[in-house]
Every structure is written in C-alpha cells, then in structure tokens.
Design a binder for these strands. Structure first.
Length: 505
RNA sequence: GGCCCGUUCGUCUAGGGGUUAGGACAGCAGAUUUUCAUUCUGUAAACAGGGGUUCGAUUCCCCUACGGGCUACCA
C-alpha cells in the first residue's frame, strides 16, 4: 500500500465556505490517522474567476481552524510549485501525449460555434447537445480534417483546444470509498476539453496530472465531482497511471428548504457560512465569519466533524487526537446534511465551559477594553467564574456589566414592582449597617449575615433579596447576589447601597 | 429532459432480518435556584410509498415518489 497523501484543492474564486472547511478537515484527519501528508494545492486555472485575496483567505482560514497542511502553497515541499498557474508549462506535453496515443484530439470549433449549435439544438427540442463520440465527426477537429490542414492551422497560431476522445460502448466503474461501486457508460460522457485555447489546462487535466505527479493516494472531495470522476478514471487509464482511491463527500445543505448551503443563506438566516469574515473586493459587501462572531475554532471544527460523520457511539465532544483516532472514511454518511446553527451554538457553549478560567479571562480582557473596563486578571477570572454558566460566547460574559462598574440605571419594571419609596431605602440602610460588620466578606460569610438579618427582621428572602440585587446590579437577573457582592468587595457594596437608596429614594 | 447519488424523530445521527428503533440539538412539562442562566427529571417526536425475498422486513432486491448533484474552453 502506498503512502497516504491527500490534498485539499480549492480554487481561489472567493472565500472558503464551511463545506470546503469540512472537506479539508476530513482530508487532514485521514492523513494524520495514517501518518500521511496533507497538501494544499491552489487550482487557479481559470484566470477569469480569480479573486484577489481569496488564496490568502484560504490559508488563513485553515490556520485558524487548526487544520494546517504540511505541504503546499504557503508551506513549500518537494512537489512545488503547488499553484496550478505556476505549473502551466507542464500540462501541455501531457495533453499532447494523449493526442499521440489516440486518446485525445485537436478541435478548432470556437466557443461561439458551440454556443450556436447548442442554441439550435435547443430549438429543435434537443436540449442537451454534447460534443461527444457521435457529434465530433461533424465538427472541426483533427479527426475530421486532413492532417496537413490541422498542422497548418496549428502552425499559423489558430486557437484550438485539446479534447478527450471518449470511447464508445464502454463501462467505467470505480469503487468509491463512501458509495461503493459506481458505474457509468462512456456513451453518456462527452469529449471534455482538457487543454484550453488560452494555454491553460482545464480542471480535469490539471487535477489528474497534479494528483499523479504529487503522488496523491486518496482523492477526498465533494459530491459535486462524482459525475466527472469517470472522466478522471479514463484519464488515468489513458496515461497508464494507477488511479488514486476516490471518496465523494455528501454536501452540506441549507437549514431550511432544500439545496446546498450557499453564501446567501448566511445573511438570510443570520449565521456565518464562512470561517472568517470576508469583504468582497468588488462590491465591498461583508460576509460574517465564525471567528468574528466569537466561535472557538475547535468548537467550529467539532461541529463540522459530526456533520456527515458519526463515530458509532454517542461521543460528541472530541479533542483533536480523539478525532484523528476515531475518524474513518467508512463512517461518513451517504446523504447530505442540513446545517444546524443551534447545534453549532451548543458546541461553542460546551467548549466555553471547558476552557480554563485563566484562558477565558485572557479572552475576555480585550473585549472589556473596548468598553473601557480595566480589571486585574485575577478579578476577571472571578467574573468568568460567575458568568460562564450563562454564556455561549466569551462576549456574553460582558452582560455582567455590574461586575465592572456600578449600575448607571435601575431597571424600571423591577423598581416599579419591588421598590417602595422610603420603606425600601430604610431597609437597605439597615442591611448595610449589618454588612459593614461582616468580617468574612465571602459568599458564605455574607450569606450567614443575610440569614441572620432576615431572622431578626422576621422577613422572607423575597422581601429583601431583590432589593439588594437591585442595589448591586440595577437588574433582577444574574448570578447570586452573594457572589456578586463578594467579588466586587465590601467597600463597593457599601457605595452601591448608598447610591441606590439615594437614587431611588 | 438525460446521467449519477441519496431517503431513520423538526435537525444531526446510531442501529440493522426478530429491538420498548438508542443518543444529541431544538421543543414542551416539572424540580432545584432569591432572579436569569445552569443543572436534574420527565415528555412528545422517525424507519417516504408500493411490490417482492423470507417464518419474519426499518434492515436485502425491484419499482415509484421525493430530494440533491452534474450536464461550459468554471472549478
């Protein structure tokens, strides 16, 4: 068995969307599991679709996700270059080799010619005209023209393409690692262009030549490639090369309705479809990203792992090593998966809770600074401890604004419902004088004092607690008042009671 | 239209000739909590349909329906 070498081969036509990230992830895990290589190849053979910044985006996105190639564009390696535009000179000899062997031919029909034929065919109710084993004999190519005329045209610099000569009445079959045997008849396949008139190979030629010269052992790619897989299999046969194993991944579908997840669904339904935020260089339109929305890359990846793959037991949270150990291509599902934004949030929540306090604090501090809040790291850890149970994102912990500053306003509804002017203020001042004497200003210490206060006053919790909370936070929600008081400290508590009573009367 | 791929709770899925068809998210209902959140408990919810094969099909085969992908000198 040959060494496992897999590749992720996107085209730089825009930002990488989460389906692409999942494909990269599965390739990465497969490589790691088998001690193989994971390479990044950029398929930029269509100059008209090139989008500036897309390549950098792809590299940065993979880096953020923690699924880095060990070879490829941005990483170097023995098979460099890994950008197809830079490999341009090497494809033509391969195409010509196929012509010599009789597996391909020159064609001089222009795009306009073909457009016209297709239009006419459509008018004649033949909606699917193809350049294939039958129609090619009526076209302008090296199969129908005299040899000297063909050579003259080429010598004169006339534009031409090289097409694959798909044989007739043959069966192409290959075993897909996910779907099992897949069979096509060559009669359904057309004579695909391998080499374009602009001197660039098409995807099909470049892909096969590169996979061969880069020693790729397994091609793991999206299902949209399944229909062209037989052509690729035929190309390997024509070159007399050993074909890699194929695995065609099911698609990621939009959460509502049908169809594959597209760029627009994100904006429409309010969740990102891209790992990183992307600004369209043409329109300036911004598409949101998981990173900017505050997702942990590990949570994002964990969600993607389970979208189309299952371990067979009930495990849902995976460390990277666990993913690598558990992953097998055989356990990838066959059908498309609808993306679920809610579950994605759940994964983030799980990861947030499993993040150690110091790390959480480090993540929160920059967000606090944006609000102008500055606290000691140890204090911020205390904030995180109180807030993490009610947060999905790190930024959610900012909702505990009262842990950073005294309340600037008091919730109107809460005041109307709980605060009795005069009476409530007097009660709070009394409670304050008790608090002043508390030596152990911890949750338990304050709690003990509070219980004692209730007893001497013969009051229930509901009569005092909401008022105290209102003094401390300005709201009626949040972590335990005792915890809040302990964290902000005695002096601050005293000040807030004074301020609250003064404000509310 | 043609070709190819697919179809288990609303969603992601486990399972696989004989099961109370399991889990998770979301939902609903309770309990705990001074509140919100958490947590816990419970609850509802699925084998697309029709034919076979079989003692027995959700599981194997065929057909239909539905969904998806592809059908460019795009990838």
């Amino acid at each position: 068995m040959r060494k496992v070498r897999v590749r992720f081969a996107p085209s730089p036509t825009g930002p990488l969307h989460m389906g692409g990230v999942r494909t990269a992830l599965y390739n990465y895990l497969f490589a790691k599991k088998h001690g193989g290589d994971f390479l990044l190849r950029i398929e930029d053979t269509d100059q008209t679709r090139y989008v500036p910044g897309a390549e950098e985006y792809i590299i940065e996105a993979l880096k953020w996700c923690g699924i880095e190639p060990n070879e490829g564009v941005g990483y170097g390696g023995d098979c460099a270059p890994y950008r197809q535009s830079e490999r341009k000179p090497m494809y033509k000899p391969y195409a010509e080799q196929l012509v010599e062997k009789g597996w391909a031919y020159y064609a001089f029909d222009t795009s306009e010619d073909l457009d016209n034929i297709r239009k006419q065919a459509e008018l004649a109710k033949m909606p699917n005209w193809q350049y294939n084993s039958i129609s090619r004999m009526t076209m302008k190519n090296s199969l129908t023209m005299p040899v000297d005329e063909v050579q003259a045209k080429i010598a004169a610099g006339d534009p031409y393409v090289i097409r694959f000569k798909m044989p007739r009445n043959e069966e192409v079959r290959f075993q897909d690692l996910i779907r099992g045997w897949v069979v096509f008849s060559t009669n359904e396949l057309d004579d695909k262009v391998l080499y374009k008139s602009d001197g660039m190979p098409t995807y099909h030629l470049a892909n096969v030549v590169d996979d061969m010269t880069m020693n790729i052992s397994h091609v793991i790619r999206g299902e949209e490639w399944l229909p062209s897989a037989p052509l690729h299999v035929m190309l390997y046969k024509a070159f007399e090369w050993e074909a890699p194993a194929f695995a065609h991944l099911p698609l990621i579908l939009k959460p509502d309705g049908n169809g594959k997840l597209s760029k627009r669904d994100g904006d429409r339904l309010g969740f990102p479809v891209f790992p990183l935020e992307w600004k369209d260089p043409e329109t300036g339109a911004i598409s949101s990203g998981y990173r900017e929305k505050g997702y942990f890359p590990k949570a994002f990846i964990n969600m993607l792992l389970l979208l189309g793959w299952a371990p067979g037991n009930n495990q849902e949270i995976f460390t990277e090593q666990e993913m690598i150990d558990a992953f097998t291509i055989e356990r990838i599902g066959k059908s498309g998966s609808k993306f679920d934004p809610d579950k994605t949030r759940w994964f983030n929540q799980q990861y947030l809770r499993n993040t150690p306090l110091p790390e959480l604090a480090q993540a929160l501090i920059p967000l606090m600074q944006e609000k102008g809040w500055v606290k000691e790291p140890s204090y911020v850890e205390g904030v995180c401890k109180l807030m993490m149970e009610r947060a999905v994102f790190v930024a959610d912990m900012l909702e505990g604004h009262y842990l950073f500053q005294a309340p600037v306003e008091y919730d109107k509804d809460a005041v109307a419902k709980k605060w009795k002017p005069g009476e409530s203020g007097a009660l709070m001042m009394e409670w304050k004088s008790v608090l002043e004497t508390v030596e152990d200003f911890s949750h338990d210490g304050i709690d003990a004092a509070f219980k004692g206060f209730l007893q001497t006053k013969s009051l229930g919790m509901g009569a005092v607690m909401p008022l105290f909370r209102l003094m401390l936070t300005g709201t009626l929600t949040g972590p335990s008042s005792m915890d809040v008081a302990a964290l902000i400290g005695k002096e601050e508590v005293m000040k807030r009671i004074d301020q609250g009573v003064k404000t509310l009367g």
